[in-house]
Write a protein that binds this DNA or RNA. Structure first.
Lengths: 338, 338
DNA sequence: ATTGGCACTCGCGGACAGGGAGTGCCAAAG
DNA sequence: CTTTGGCACTCCCTGTCCGCGAGTGCCAAT
């Protein structure tokens, strides 16, 4: 039913529609693409494609536009990710290299993505679940008051105040600091609880209360701060989502304000590789007329968080996917370096 | 020229237009307001108001709408801030009371403002210019690589990587850490530069390069940290800005993405009292068709930061001003408590 | 100063026609 | 069986015209 040429016709329709944003007819298609057949033949093919649900007509006697299903086929079978050109890659790298801290990295990434794709960009902060501990610092602020500072390999820093049950001497503090670091530095968050379990036993009776308090605060911090944060940018690009945007813009803006929705959006993505969710494939109905391209990124081979863009279903998929992948790659590099 | 009744007519026009979003004519005015005069009289008054530039007609033979100048007069002379009703005030207080930390306070405030005013809310983080340094920590990550951690009395933590010009020994590190803390701990950000100025002199020649690098990184961090941050919310409300919004929405969204623009926007406000900037009074031209209502807030009598909303020039000024003032007041209380 | 009357101006919405793009179908050709 | 040209048909879009209604400006009367 769907021979090679018909797929070619679908590809042509998608490409033209993405470019012109207008329903594309049989004649225009044969003119702009070298299909080697007449408009009448294309009409037959279009009828077949419409039967299968890949394209649709807004009204009788109008051209065809791709359906979500059509875009899906296009993305899966008819196109390849378009790699970024060398100068663009250099620009990305230069721009990201200027970042001074994690917030800055994420901020720059989000602006970069928005600019490259001309769509709305979302970048999730590196999650702490897969992170490793770089350093744990303990500071004495007052005789019975400590500050715990946790530094992760992704550059994230968390701090907590601790009120000790008993005064804690400088030597004990140094001891605890040293033991703690020798056990957890370089280890994954998930492994920390087990690694510090028997730590109180190494201390004098009088200090054990404090040590226990410190440890439980540390564990709490690990759990609490696993909570995901994200940054969003390029909102102004929603105006580019189509000429009928006054209708669709509202729910999209609302969805973008709900961090929970966005996290779920990125979360639905499989852990590896790039994901494209088209139109109604998005669970949130405010985003039913948008597509989401997302991918995991991370310092090692492993993904620690995700980033992506939200755009109109009528988007340049190959280009967008290329940009998203390139950015993810370079962010990963930056994180690995720091 | 502008007698009492004419001002009354202007007030009626503003109120009606804000309600209906449609040009208001002389007949409709006399029907909806008890002006005690005939439409013809109102027409004369309108002509006078138009001569003075307080109102304008979109087209000949259409009703009148207020100009920026008209709104200005309305806000300055014809209305008073509308206080919030008791139940709303309670709701505000309850909602803000649930906040757990500074981020949460700011986040809740922004959502609250957006919801109350149905406009775009902007809340600036409390400024750090008056903050003090609690602790400076230096960690050695590699022979020639340090991490600087700065802890402020507001509980904020900043960290920076430092590549040293030369290897830096553990003893030098401990020395620098101790000297640094004894000088700056408890001091205000603003005083730090002076306090550490002569620090390199206390070190051996070979270490001075590193010490200088560390100090300049510290000073940079202090400056950056003082730099204002802000949070924004209720963006979806721009769809309410008017039926012609497809035109105006773009520049507004763009302006809202530029933190610098927004900070300037809030900054232009006098330090005390509430400020209303109407239409072209806003320096940024993307916001020429919006009004900004802003006010300072703070824990003591002193304003430490500002908050406000951005809405259509055609907004309910008394109500918006009431909401903004009420929220600012309660946020100030919350900050004072914590 | 206020009012009623009156002519005038526009914007808006509905009706209508012509043009154009596109479709579906069919019969003929490869 | 596939492809193609032809043809009738369907709609959308645009422009025009027209009448309605809301609103104005002006003027003469109060």
């Amino acid at each position: 039913m769907l021979n090679e040429r018909r797929l070619e016709v679908l590809r042509a329709i998608v490409q033209d529609y993405v470019g012109t944003e207008e329903p594309v007819g049989s004649k225009a298609l044969t003119e702009r693409h070298k299909l080697g057949v007449s408009p009448a033949t294309v009409r037959n093919d279009m009828a077949a494609l419409e039967d299968e649900g890949f394209i649709a007509q807004p009204h009788t006697s109008a051209g065809r536009i791709p359906t979500d299903k059509g875009y899906r086929l296009f993305v899966d079978k008819l196109t390849a990710v378009k790699p970024m050109a060398a100068p663009e890659r250099r620009a990305i790298q230069n721009f990201l290299d200027g970042a001074v801290d994690l917030d800055d990295v994420v901020g720059r990434t989000v602006r970069l993505l928005a600019q490259l794709t001309r769509q709305v960009a979302i970048v999730q902060y590196p999650s702490l679940t897969r992170s490793t501990v770089r350093h744990v610092e303990l500071l004495s602020l007052a005789p019975a008051r400590l500050m715990l500072v946790l530094i992760t390999d992704t550059g994230r820093v968390e701090q907590r105040m601790i009120d000790c049950p008993a005064p804690f001497g400088e030597t004990s503090l140094a001891d605890l600091r040293a033991r703690l670091n020798s056990r957890v530095a370089g280890r994954r968050f998930a492994d920390v609880p087990q690694l510090v379990q028997d730590l109180p036993e190494a201390f004098e009776q009088e200090d054990r209360g404090t040590v226990t308090t410190v440890l439980s605060t540390l564990l709490e911090t690990l759990v609490e701060e696993t909570e995901e944060r994200l940054m969003i940018g390029g909102t102004a690009n929603i105006t580019r989502f189509g000429h009928d945007f006054p209708l669709t813009i509202r729910p999209v803006l609302e969805a973008l304000e709900e961090q929970v929705v966005l996290l779920k959006l990125l979360g639905e993505v499989g852990d590896s590789g790039m994901a494209v969710r088209i139109g109604h494939e998005n669970a949130h109905e405010g985003l039913n007329s948008t597509s989401v391209v997302s991918v995991g990124y991370g310092s090692g081979g492993e993904a620690v968080a995700k980033l992506g863009v939200v755009g109109p279903t009528r988007m340049d998929y190959p280009g967008t996917m290329g940009a998203v992948r390139a950015v993810a790659r370079y962010v990963g590099q930056i994180l690995a370096e720091s």
